[in-house]
Design a protein around this nucleic acid. Structure first.
Lengths: 189, 189
DNA sequence: ACTCTTTGATTGAATAATCATTCGGTTTTT
DNA sequence: AAAAACCGAATGATTATTCAATCAAAGAGT
């Protein structure tokens, strides 16, 4: 077993347990057992439980960004790029319910607050922010603060992922397309 | 001190602690201390921690429904009723950030899953569901499954409440109005 | 090839803190 | 005085974290 193998096993186990039971239902001993690793080993790779949680989120975020970037064409029209991002996000989230559940848990937890603030105030160079700035410059969307634009886009998309994963609806390509287009209707002037 | 006084003190303390620290950071001893009550007393009113959490959510939900019903006019146009609900919801949530934080924690936690399923599959007689069915019959909104309609409405509204409470934006009446109208744009055909 | 040594990885039992819950007794209300 | 509300220390289970002991691998010297 390689150096990073156990590290990744721990991250995956943490993701699954937290997704299923929340942070308060995910003891380190349980994570260790699911990862097939001794409790002490976790502390070889992560300073604390908090550090493990942060690392797990960072890993999932990377996967998500990667899957959105896949097939993204910088030269397409604003609307086409918007549709691509929406589709890719929803498909990626519902493909692995555990990912989605963990990310939601993280976002509302005290862990996520700082991370969230950084995101919106700090980095100005990510794919989505650039797209929205582009759209505003071209006068395609309403004049609203960036966080509101984010809300109108990702609020509904995360909500339908949640409903799908909890079995309240069944998302297919057509329904995803319709919903993403409806989000666009909310933005366009 | 009245019979129900301590009961309510416990509920409020639970709301505040859970809103601040999540379920895993809200020990019964802490709730008791904040409520100004002995730990054992909680068990006079609630069978267990789970029961307390459920009761706290039920109480908040009642308050929320009440504040939305206030000033709601059954005879208004669909769009006017929609705007009223959106405005009332956002104003009510940002007026007491603790309420909002608790409700979010609850919805995502294992507690909320069952409650959520009941809501959408069971009760067909609440204000909002009736409004949406009305709107669909009049051909005013897109033909989408009810959960998706809910997502397009409440997804963004909850998101802007979160952003406001975390200090990422500052909501005023105008911005709230604009955002609720944008949600309507997402729905209307 | 064969030992000795070093280094880092891994273990799991031990620790100390914290948790939900209980219960015998006290106070308050009726 | 009976009943209900209330208290808070005690209980037993669970927790994150530590650590002394083992293991595996990889040279280094012979």
């Amino acid at each position: 077993m390689q150096h990073t193998d156990k590290r990744m096993a721990v991250i995956l186990a943490a993701m699954e347990l937290v997704a299923e039971n929340g942070f308060h239902g995910s003891p380190m001993s349980g994570i260790a057992k699911r990862a097939g690793v001794a409790a002490g080993t976790i502390y070889h790779y992560f300073e604390s439980k908090d550090a493990l949680i942060e690392a797990t989120y960072a890993h999932l975020e990377e996967l998500l960004i990667e899957s959105i970037r896949q097939g993204y064409c910088e030269d397409s029209s604003v609307q086409e790029r918007f549709l691509h991002i929406g589709r890719a996000l929803v498909n990626s989230l519902i493909a692995f319910p555990m990912k989605f559940r963990f990310i939601e848990q993280f976002h509302i937890s005290p862990y996520g607050v700082a991370s969230r603030r950084e995101r919106l105030l700090g980095k100005k160079d990510d794919l989505v922010t650039l797209l929205f700035e582009d759209a505003r410059q071209q006068g395609l969307i309403k004049k609203l603060p960036l966080p509101v634009v984010f809300a109108l886009t990702f609020g509904p998309l995360l909500a339908i992922c949640r409903d799908h994963i909890f079995g309240l609806i069944t998302l297919d390509d057509l329904l995803i397309e319709k919903t993403v287009k409806a989000c666009w209707d909310a933005l366009k002037r």
